[in-house]
Nucleic acid binder design. Structure first.
Length: 580
DNA sequence: ACTTGATGATCCC
DNA sequence: TGGGATCCCTCAAG
């Protein structure tokens, strides 16, 4: 059932329900037959709102007028508020919730979303068609805009010399898509998941951060071993990085303006950096940290704030090195940082100023970037390829994944732009395309998809595996039990495992094993185990547990004590802060 | 089965 | 250059 369908449209809808998708498409792309009957009910003129509402009541005696037409009521009030002049058009029948015009309706019809035809395509952003007919949707393998490859030298040549050649394997590795849901941790977090990271040495341990700053640790094989720490950060946990010298320590970056070095056994964090030492004095001065990376060679922590500045920290002495450097437009957010895996001195930054930039951290000055990569909108992320470091992959809010095949070449335009739905939505964690760290050929990337696909009558949002060398869609990973969007995805550095953050839940995917029970039933059952609690917990009701879920494994004992030496065995909320 | 609210980038003056 | 209205496939609580 489409929950967004307006009450008043029910008649039209039920009449049409039996109709197939084609008719719906037709309706969406052109003004067709059905509207005629609504036009007559339209009230035009410069009536005052009171009049208009009365009219409506009479016309729609069947239904409570106010309730039935919230959009019309809002529309009637708008002129008074906004001072808009001219005739007011009040529709008594269905009004498009996007453009407020009659004759069509945007929204879900069953599991299919019908676009507003007055807007540019929600996928490729071009006018003249909607998502349903967008060529990039119909055939993903054609969703590539080729760009000429040039070979002009850049200053990056100087930095890299020829050290990288020969590092890339020419042999395509075995590629197993982790396409089957293995297990999940439903509502492990109280707010939406913002980042994920696999533990570097403990193979089955997944770290997760959320919008409230909660840090989660979960062993997805032992399942019941999970911990959450709520005292490390006070708001959005944007990035996590392990200390390569000590894998018991995790660096975290947060919108609270701090970098924390957290002991995973105790959950006790010591601040490495606090950009808001004087506390809150309004949003215009509050600094948030999104981008962070570690230069392991130099023991250097690189951090960037929401005002465009980059900070260098010495990991051991915990002191700042030099002054902050402006690396993106002043006052704009730096969304991400990545040190080149082959040449850690080389840094890639992405920002809200619609640019990704490459820097030499040994020679940092404002405007001293080695290259500036222009994008259509905000750049959510930018990553060097995981082994050779000589490719770049960026995710931009203009619904394009950009690939630069060779950073020695001319970087003015990307080698490819891959149209892919990962639009910005303020309620979703920004999408980020990430390389598969196991793929020696450096071609496979994973990214969640915003727009849904009708999957047996259910709107599902797949996780896409994309061949970045061709733009071809290699695999769509989804499960009928997961109806929410999955903007956060992480591929395991060694195993064929995908971790997904979707809303407040975390999921683990594995490749489908032929020896496994092939029925979907098994998958569903597995998820439900976590829906209803792990181990000792009994199924309490027919719905997903509420936020008390987090305490569900209290049965393992020692609930309010610290997690001391027994790691990850129970839910610990902060260090001794938990309520009695 | 509806409504509500949280809240980031953008656009427009 | 800055404040305020606007917004398109959210999600889950009530």
């Amino acid at each position: 059932m489409p929950p967004t369908m307006a009450t008043r449209a029910r008649f039209v809808y039920s009449r049409r329900r039996a109709a197939d998708e084609e008719e719906e498409q037709e309706e969406a792309s052109s003004s067709s037959s059905d509207e005629e009957e609504e036009e007559e009910a339209e009230v035009e003129g410069s009536d005052e709102e009171g009049d208009a509402e009365e009219e409506e009541e009479e016309a729609d005696a069947d239904e409570p007028a106010v309730k039935a037409s919230p959009s019309a009521a809002a529309g009637a009030k708008a002129p008074g508020r906004g001072g808009r002049k001219g005739p007011i058009t009040i529709s008594l029948k269905k009004v498009c919730k996007v453009c407020k015009k009659t004759g069509h309706q945007a929204g879900f019809k069953g599991a299919v979303y019908i676009d507003c035809p007055m807007k540019p395509c929600f996928l490729c952003k071009m006018p003249g068609h909607t998502t349903l007919t967008c060529p990039h949707r119909v055939a993903m393998e054609h969703g590539v805009i080729p760009a000429p490859r040039r070979n002009t030298n850049t200053s990056l040549d100087y930095v890299f010399q020829s050290q990288i050649k020969g590092k890339i394997s020419m042999v395509k590795p075995r590629f197993l898509v982790p396409n089957q849901l293995e297990c999940g941790n439903i509502k492990f977090h109280q707010r939406r998941v913002t980042c994920l990271e696999f533990h570097p040495t403990q193979n089955n341990v997944l770290l997760s951060g959320d919008k409230k700053g909660l840090l989660g640790i979960w062993d997805y094989v032992k399942l019941h071993e999970k911990v959450t720490y709520d005292s490390v950060h006070s708001c959005i946990l944007n990035s996590m990085k392990f200390d390569t010298a000590n894998d018991g320590v995790l660096y975290t970056a947060s919108s609270d303006g701090t970098i924390s070095s957290t002991d995973l056994d105790t959950g006790i964090g010591s601040p490495l950096l606090n950009l808001n030492p004087d506390g809150w004095s309004g949003p215009s001065t509050w600094r948030m940290i999104y981008g962070m990376d570690l230069n392991t060679e130099k023991g250097l922590l690189l951090v960037a704030d929401s005002f465009g500045f980059l900070y260098l920290l010495d990991r051991r002495s915990k002191t700042r090195i030099g002054q902050p450097v402006l690396i993106h437009k002043k006052g704009s957010k730096v969304t991400g940082l990545h040190c080149n895996p082959a040449q850690p001195e080389v840094l890639l930054s992405s920002g809200n100023d619609h640019f990704a930039r490459i820097w030499d951290t040994r020679k940092l000055e404002p405007k001293s970037s080695l290259a500036s990569l222009a994008h259509g909108r905000v750049v959510n992320s930018g990553y060097f390829s995981p082994r050779s470091g000589n490719k770049i992959l960026t995710t931009c809010q203009d619904n394009r994944i950009r690939v630069w095949d060779y950073i020695f070449g001319n970087l003015e335009s990307p080698s490819r732009e891959i149209v892919h739905s990962h639009d910005f939505n303020r309620h979703l964690t920004p999408f980020k395309a990430e390389w598969d760290p196991k793929d020696y050929s450096e071609t496979v990337a994973v990214i969640g998809r915003y727009i849904s696909e009708n999957h047996n009558g259910v709107a599902l949002h797949p996780i896409d595996f994309i061949d970045t060398s061709t733009g071809k869609l290699l695999a769509e990973v989804m499960d009928p039990d997961i109806t929410t969007i999955s903007p956060v995805n992480k591929l395991h550095p060694r195993d064929d495992i995908l971790a997904t953050g979707s809303s407040r839940s975390i999921f683990i995917w594995k490749p489908k094993n032929d020896t496994d029970d092939p029925t979907e039933e098994r998958t569903s059952q597995k998820v439900k185990e976590y829906v209803y609690g792990s181990g000792s917990r009994k199924k309490s009701n027919g719905k997903h547990g509420d936020s008390s879920d987090d305490d569900s494994d209290g049965g393992t004992g020692g609930k309010n004590k610290k997690a001391k030496k027994t790691r990850f065995t129970h839910t610990a909320k902060g260090k001794g802060k938990s309520k009695a």
